[in-house]
Write a protein that binds this DNA or RNA. Sequence first.
RNA 1: GCCGAAGUGGCGGAAUUGGUAGACGCGCACGACUCAAAAUCGUGUAUCGCAAGAUGUGAGAGUUCGAUUCUCUCCUUCGGCACCA
Length: 879
Amino acid sequence: MSSTYNHQEIEQKWQKYWVDHKIFAAEDKSRKPKYYCLIEFPYPSAEGLHVGHPRSYTALDIIARKRKMEGYNVLYPIGFDAFGLPAENYAIKTGVHPKIKTEENINNFRKQLKSLGLAFDWSREVITSDPEYYKWTQWIFLQLFKHGLAYKAEMPINFCLDCQVGLANEEVVGGQCERCGSEVIKKTKKQWLLKITKYADRLEKDLAGLDYIERVKIQQKNWIGKSEGARVRFKISSPYQGEVSCLPAQAGSDGGVAESIGQPPLTPPWKGGEIKVYTTRPDTLFGATYMVLAPEHELVQQLKDQITNFSEVKDYIKTSAKKSDLERTELNKEKTGVELYGIKAINPVNNQEIPIWLSDYVLASYGTGAIMAVPAHDERDYEFAKKFNLEIIEVIKGGDVSQAAYTDINDGQMVNSDFLNGLNPKEAIVKMTGWLKENNLGEPAVNYKLRDWVFSRQRYWGEPIPLIFCSACKKSMENSKFQIPNSKYNEGELLNPGWVADENLPLELPEIKEFQASGEGESPLAKLENWVNVKCPKCGGSAKRETDTMPQWAGSSWYFLRYADPHNNKALASEKNLKYWTPVDWYNGGMEHTTLHLLYSRFWHKFLYDIGVVPTSEPYQKRTSHGFILGEGGEKMSKSRGNVINPDDVVKEYGADTFRLYEMFMGPFDQAIPWDTKGVVGMRRFLEKIWIRFNGIIEDDIVGGVFAKEPLSDDKNIKELEILLNQTIKKVSDDIENMKFNTAVSALMILLNKYFDLSISDFAKEKIIFEKFSKNFLILFSPFAPHIAEELWQKLGHNKILLKEEWPKADEAKLKDEEVEIVVQINGKVRAKIKLPSDISEEEAIVAAKADLNIQKYLADQKIKKTVFVPGRLISFVI
RNA sequence: GCCGAAGUGGCGGAAUUGGUAGACGCGCACGACUCAAAAUCGUGUAUCGCAAGAUGUGAGAGUUCGAUUCUCUCCUUCGGCACCA
C-alpha cells in the first residue's frame, strides 16, 4: 500500500514548482543581508555535462540553500562561457557555424543543469558570445587600451605548419599539433598583450586579506614569483678601444625599482656600454668571475664590431633560437655557450676584468636578460664554469667549493670579500646593497616571474578586438608627442602609435563561411576585405581593423559582475547593483584555473576598481576548490578509455537527489576520487529507506494513528535521541561550512537509523517527538536531496515549503550526554570502559575505575606511579 | 630539481588543542522471507589466535603515561612549476 519512491515524478514536480514560484530569483532590493555564491560557468561543450561539473555546483547549491534558510537574499547565478576552440574546430570540419553549434550545446546544458534541481537564478543567465554581453568585454578592453595597459609587441607563438594556424600552449601536445599531429614551430608574431605585470605586486600582497584556501594562495604566489635583490651595473671594456661606455650611460637615471618587470623579450631594458644584471645574492659579488648574456640580448648586436669571433657567436644564437621549448628543457643537463672575444666586463667591486659569455641557460625574458656568474655559490654557474674551465672563487665559507656550489644563504661566513669579510650572507646582502647605492653602481630591485598576458588569438570564434589601425593617425601621433589621456598609468611613452579605438560597440563578429585560418596564420577575419577596410574614426581616412580576436579568458574575467545586473544596456552593471552584490562571497572552482582565470579576473577587477567602475578591489572574498572525479578504476574519464559516466543516465535511472547525494558523499570534496556505481546504488537505498519509513508513519497515521495518545515515559531513549538530534544539527551545519559534505551525510544517516531503531520500541512514535525529528531532519537533509525532502515535508501536511523554513540551531545545553563512557588505560593500553556521569570529579572517577574488576586484576601488587585524568574521556594509570 | 597535497581494512573513506583507530557507505559471509532468484530485513566483517591476548594507520627513529595526529630521516603516489640568477 505504501507508494513507491518515484523520483522522476517528484523531481519534475518540484523543479516546476521552484520555477513557477520564482523561488531562486535573487532580489536586487531587499532588507535581508545579501549572499553571493558563485561557481565557474561551464564551457558548453558538445559532450554535454561531465559528472565533475555537478560536484562543484551541488556543493555551492547546498551553501546557497542553507544561506536562504538562514535568512539571506541569495544570488546563485549561472551562465555559459560560450566562445572557444572546439566550436571553431567543429566549424572548420563541418561548416556548421560556431554560433549554431554553441546554441545547440547550450540548450543541452540548460536541460541537463535543470534536471539536477540546482538553485540557480536562471533569469540572470549570461552568455559570453552574446553581443549584448561582449559589448562590455570589448568596452573593458578599450579602457585597458586607453590607460596604456594594452600594447602590441612581437611574440614567439606556436604555429602549426599544416593547419596554418596559431595554437595556444594547451593545444600543443609533446611539440605536436593536437589536431593534426604535425610539428609545431615557433613563429614570431605581433600580439596584443595586457600589462598584468603592473599589478604583480598588488596581486600578491592583497592575497593576505582574502579567504582563499592555502593551496590557491601558494600557487598564485609562486606564479607571480616575486623576488627581491639588487640590480648591478658592470662596465664593458675592450682591449682595442678602451672603455666603450661612450654610449649615453643611463646610470641612476631610471632609479625605479621594478623597471624591467615582465617586458617582452624584444623590447629589452638594457642600454649603453654596460651590462645590467639582476641578482638576489649581491653578497656574492666578489665571487663573480664571468658574466653571461642571453643569446637574444640586444647588446650582442650593438657590440658586434668589437666582438672578434662574431661569426661563431652568430651561429650559437641561431642554433639556440631553433631549439624548441621541449629541446631547451630536455637538454637542460648539458650547458652550452660561447665566449665573446674582444670585450670584457669589469666587476664594479674590485675593478677586475672578467669574461663575457653567451648561453641559453640565461633567459632573455627574466630580469635583465644577463647575469653575473658566481660559480662558487650557484649550481648552474658552477656547472657552466666546470665545463668551460672558468675561475671559481669562494666568497662564503661553509661548503666544499671543490666539490659543489655552496648555496646556503642562512649559514656561512664571508671571505675574500674585502669589506664584507666576517659577515654572514644576510648581513652581507644588506651591506653590499647599501654600498652599491652609495657608489651609484646599483640599487635594490624587485623581480617577478609573472609575464604579461598574451591577449590576441588568430581565431574567428572570439570577441573581435575593437581597434583600427590608421597610418595617417600614426604619423600625427608621432609628431605630436602622444600621451595616454586620463591615465594614471601614463608613462609618456609613444604606445601603440596609429591604433584607434572603435567606440561603436558592440563590434559584432561578421558572418563568414570559411573558418579556416588565412594565409600566414592570420585570423579568418582577415579575409573579409569589406570588414577589414574601414574609415578611421579619428581622421576619416582609410584604415584597417584589427583581425585578431580575444582569448577565451576575456569573457570569463568579469562575468560575475554582469550577473549583478545582466540586462543593463547602459553599463556593464549599475553602480547600485554592484555595490549591493559584490564582492562574490564564495567562489568555488577548479585548481586548474588558479593561475589563469582566477589571476586574470583579479587583475581586471583591480583595474576596474582603479578606474572607478567597481566598488571593491578584489572580486572574490572566499575561494575554494573541488577535486576531480575520475573514472571507475581511478583513471581520468575520457572518451578514448570508454569510462565516461553520463550524468543524464544517472539522473534518469536513480534520480537527481541520488546523484547529488552520492557526489557529496563519495569522499572529501577537495580530493580527486574515482566514480563508483555501487556507491550510487547505496545512496539510492538510503533515499528509499527514508521514503518508506516516513511514508509508513504518514499512512499509518491517516489510517488509525500510530502515535501514542499519552506521553510515553521512556526518558532515557528520549534524552538520547534529543542529544543526537542536537549533535547532528551542529555537525551538519559545521560540516557544510567546511565543505565536509561526506561526514555531514553520514551524520544524517546515523540520525535517521537511530530514530527508526528506537521507534520500534514505540516511544519515538509520540507525535511531538516525531514532529521535532522530522522537521529538523528534513531541513538538514534538504540541501543535499531537495526534491524528496520537499515532497515528504508536503506529505506531512505542511503548506509552507521547506526552503522557507528556518535553518535550525543546536541547543548547546543538549549536546552532551549526562553519562559518558570513560576509558581506563594502564600503561597506555585500554583495559576497561566504564559509564560515569560526564561531570564527575577526578577523585570519584579514579575510585570508580579502581573498582572495576578487570582493572583490579591489572593493578594487583602494582605501584601506581602516575594517574592522568581527562574529563569525559579517560583515566590512565602508569604502573 | 623546487613548491604543494596525500599514503589508514577487500574498496571509498572517518577520527588531529595528542586520549577507545576503522564512523558512514560499498563489498563479502551467514541467517530470515521465497518453490527459487532478485529486492528487502537481521547478524557479522582490520590481522593472527579456540580463547585469554597480541599486532596494526607507507618505512625507520624520537618526544609522551598515551602518537593516524607532534619532531627528524627516508620511500611512494598525485597535482603544479621547471635553468627565474
